[in-house]
Structure formats: structure tokens, C-alpha cells
Amino acid sequence: MLSILRLTLQRLGLGVLVLFVVSLIIFLGVELLPGDLCQAIQGQSATESTVAACRKDLGLDQSAPTRYVHWLQGIVKGDFGKSLANGRQISELISVRLQNTFFLAIVAAVIAVPLSLTLGILAALYRNSWFDRTINVFTLSSISFPEFFVAYILILVFSVKLGWFPSLSDVSPDTPFFERLYKVFLPALTLTLVVMAHMMRMTRAAIINLMASPYIEMAKFKGLSRGRIILHHALPNAWAPIVNVVALNLAYLIVGVVIVEVVFVYPGLGQLIVDSVQKRDIPVVQACSIIFAATYVVLNLTADILSIATNPRLLHPR
């Protein structure tokens, strides 16, 4: 147990280092974006004097290294600074949207993870049967279509034709929980369809892989039922790859939902980052990117720790 704790701390330290490097890359990347924030804000109506006034106002006339150091100091203190475009506190701007993004990701995960694990186990159990094939074809087709297409189809069926669910998921902080759940159903379903295939097929493959092992052979000779073999003997050893794939998909649910947010008009972080890139609102882009990077780091860390916890052999690498 102590070694797991040590390992966790070690990984956390590495994570912070990764985040630091990421922050540098983000800053450099944003610096390389063409165009100018003040030009972008004022669009066609920008004139030389108004642009100069705007640049001075926003501190854009300072050098890049100075701005980077200021920014990093701010982040350490938990202060992301102010949005250049509308002068609001970024932490305030992001917090609501981050909650929305997490809410949608959690709802999608709550549907997608158990569903794909169950389907994966069932597919392994009834390998090569009609059931297995149907599930495979269905999940592979849904992952093959672009997200916006899946979203439009769902809107057409459930919103325009049947009228069961709204096509606009315009939630706000004061939306009651169940109404919120109702409003995010279609985007969550879209995301479920998009991420399900990956998790389901990994579960199936990991279990089938183990089914050839000698200890499963032994269990078969003991006369155990197939279901019991899979659930009690194969699955515990299959967790490591499954957990990793689940973590990867959860990260995707948080950082990769821009298109779904646009189609369903869901006020999440993705929409904010797109708007901010278009408007050269650099502090907001940087803050969002750091949050996305942190999400990846934390989820991967969790996956690592979980897979080690389920497979003690990994604690003693040789």
C-alpha cells in the first residue's frame, strides 16, 4: 500500500512537470497564431488609432517573455487573469462552463462506460454469434460517422420527428437537475455512440485474449460456466487495458466535444475555446488549454494507479 502511495506522489510530481512543459508549448503556440487580438475584436471596423489604443489597454505592447512569466505566476496563485476581449475574470468565465462540460461528460460516461463494458463482456461471452456481430457492426458504424452527423440524425429522429427531446441544450446555472438531465440527453447520447465502440471492443479483445490462458483452461476443466469464468477469472486480469481505454475516452469526453457543443448549443468549455481562438483572447485560450492538459494528466494518472492496483505485479517492475 505504501508503495502505491509513493508511486502516486512520484507520478503527481511528473504530472506537474508535464504541465509546466505544456504551459510553455501553449504559450509559444498561441504566440504563433496569425493576426492580432485588437484587429480581431474590432473586425472590419478597426482603424490604426483604435487598434493602438486597444493594444496598450490590454498590455499587448509588452514583450512575450514578460507576459509568460506574469501569466505563470498568476496560474500558480490560481489567477488566470482577465479575458482580453470583455475584461471579465477568466476563472469566473470558465467555472460555469467547466461545470457544464464535466456534467455532460459525466452523464455521457455514466451511460457509455457500463453499457460498453457490459456489451463487451457479452460480446466476448457470445463470441462470433449473431449478437457479437450485430454489436460490432453497430458500434463500428456509429464511431465511423462524424459526430455532427450522428448529432443531426439524433435531432431529426428524437427532436424533429418524435419531439421527445429538445434540440437545444441551453442549460444555465439555475436549471434544475432533472431538467438539465433531460436537456443534455441528446448530446450525451451522441457522445455515447461516438466513444462506445472503442471501449466495447477493447473489453472484448482483452477478455478474449485471456480466454486462451492456461488458468482459464483449468477453470473450464473444473466445469465452471462460461459466464462465471469471464466475470470471476478473466475480467479481473483484463482491467488494466480496459481502464486505460476508459480513461482515454473520458478525457475525450471532456476535451473533444466542441462539435457536439456547437450543434446542441451547449455552453461548455469547447465553445469558449473556439470563440476565444477566433477572437485572439489569448489568456482564455491558455487557461482552457492548461485545464485540458491537466484533465489528461489526472485521468492518465488515475488509469495508471488503477491498473497497478488491480495487477500487483506492475508494482515491482524488473
Binding site: Y152, I155, S159, V160, S167, L168, D170, V262, V263, F264, V265
Partner: peptide
């Protein structure tokens, strides 16, 4: 309500 996507706007 800002609905940037014209298809989403028409659907709504």
C-alpha cells in the same frame, strides 16, 4: 440565444 450553427438554428 446565440446559435452559431445555422443547421442548429433552423432545427430549433
Amino acid at each position: 440565444i446565440t446559435i452559431a450553427d445555422v443547421t442548429a438554428r433552423t432545427n430549433a
